[in-house]
Amino acid sequence: MTSSSSIVIVGAGVLGLCTAFELHRRGRSFLVVDPGEANASAVAAGMIAPAMEAAIDDASPERAALFRESRDLWPDFAQAAGIALARRPAEWRGGDAAVIAARMRALGFQASLNGDRVVTDEDYQVNPGQALAAMKAALSDAVMTGRVEAVRRTGGGWRVQTDRRALQTDAVVLATGAEGAVLGLPQAVRQQVAAIQPIRGQIGTMTQALAAHVVRGPGAYVAPMGTGVVVGATMEPGRRDTAPDAAAGERLVQAAWRVLGRTLEPLEIEWRAGVRGATADGLPLA
């Protein structure tokens, strides 16, 4: 059986679903192929953080402007997609607070400094689980469960072979994160896919409401999530395993308590790990 749509999107993480929803808003014909497995988008704190990320990474003015412009697209998109967008303060706590505040201000972000704390109102947050579910619900039948096995050029289009059926399409969007290249891709595309680096990240979730807004500091962050918080996160380039690492979790917990200024308490934490794809310069790849 073969069906057709003008665009096939391979992958149903945040990038695949955001691409699909934007095409939906523009009235385009598309189909998302969702492998149905847990992806890195669900193992995240959902921070849309141009001010904090720019300051922590000591970003260039051009990079900071890209971060800000990306954030500014979110309110309209979130409202259209039914995504709950939290617009609350974000805080940095640590001995280098003055440096963080100075970098934010130099890049045009608002920041207030009080001792070893920096607070900005420029960062947002979403709940990844709610965001992914909202987009899938909005896209409805345009999301099919399956795994792409191969692609093949057919005249001016593509034949996408899944484990369920063949799809005929004018264009293919790969939103497969750190996964390997699909069989049949052109050499130039395979080279781009091969350049994507896997980065393993581990986070922990707790039911206790330890923070009312995102709190970051050396070695960890604590961010509200549902009725509890998420604690994160490791960044381990080159790793593809997703089994939680107890030692890494212990280090994150100790750093989180230091950030919060609290003594270590025995709390129940659920650890998860995901693998996302990254480019050498940290910028989007199209």
Rank of each mutant, 00 (worst) to 15 (best):
V8P: 01
V222D: 03
T242R: 15
P50Y: 14
A212K: 13
A194W: 13
L85F: 03
A278Q: 07
T2A: 12
L17E: 00
M1C: 10
P128A: 12
E149W: 09
R258M: 09
W92M: 01
A101Q: 00
G226L: 05
A12M: 04
P198H: 09
P128I: 07
S4K: 11
F21H: 07
V151R: 00
R164D: 08
G177M: 06
D141W: 11
V230T: 04
V43S: 03
A98C: 07
A233W: 04
G238V: 06
F67V: 02
G282P: 02
P224S: 13
L107D: 00
Y124V: 01
A223S: 11
R117I: 06
F109V: 00
R216M: 12
M1A: 12
A280E: 10
F109I: 02
Q130L: 12
A12C: 08
V143T: 01
A90V: 05
R152K: 15
V231W: 06
I7W: 02
L17W: 04
D116S: 06
R240I: 11
G184F: 12
A142G: 07
F67W: 10
P75N: 06
T162I: 10
G46L: 05
N114P: 03
Q202G: 03
L17K: 01
G217S: 06
A195P: 07
P224E: 06
G226F: 05
S60F: 13
P237N: 03
Q191D: 12
L174C: 04
A286G: 12
W257G: 04
R68C: 11
A42C: 08
M47A: 04
A102V: 00
S5F: 13
E22Y: 14
K136P: 07
R262S: 11
F30W: 07
V193P: 05
V259H: 01
A166Q: 13
A78E: 02
F67G: 01
A273I: 02
P244M: 08
T162W: 10
A90H: 06
A81R: 01
P35G: 05
P186M: 10
P186E: 08
T120W: 10
E37C: 11
I196L: 08
G95V: 04
E179C: 09
S3A: 08
A280Y: 07
P75I: 05
E149F: 10
G226D: 03
T145M: 15
A195M: 14
R26H: 14
A102D: 03
R103Q: 07
D96T: 10
V151S: 01
V229N: 08
A133Y: 02
L210Y: 12
S4W: 10
K136G: 14
W257I: 06
G94E: 07
T227I: 13
T263K: 15
S70T: 15
E265S: 14
L139G: 01
V259N: 01
A142Q: 14
A59E: 07
A243E: 14
E149Y: 10
A255K: 04
V126H: 00
M47V: 05
Q125C: 13
I196T: 00
A181N: 13
V43I: 15
Y221M: 02
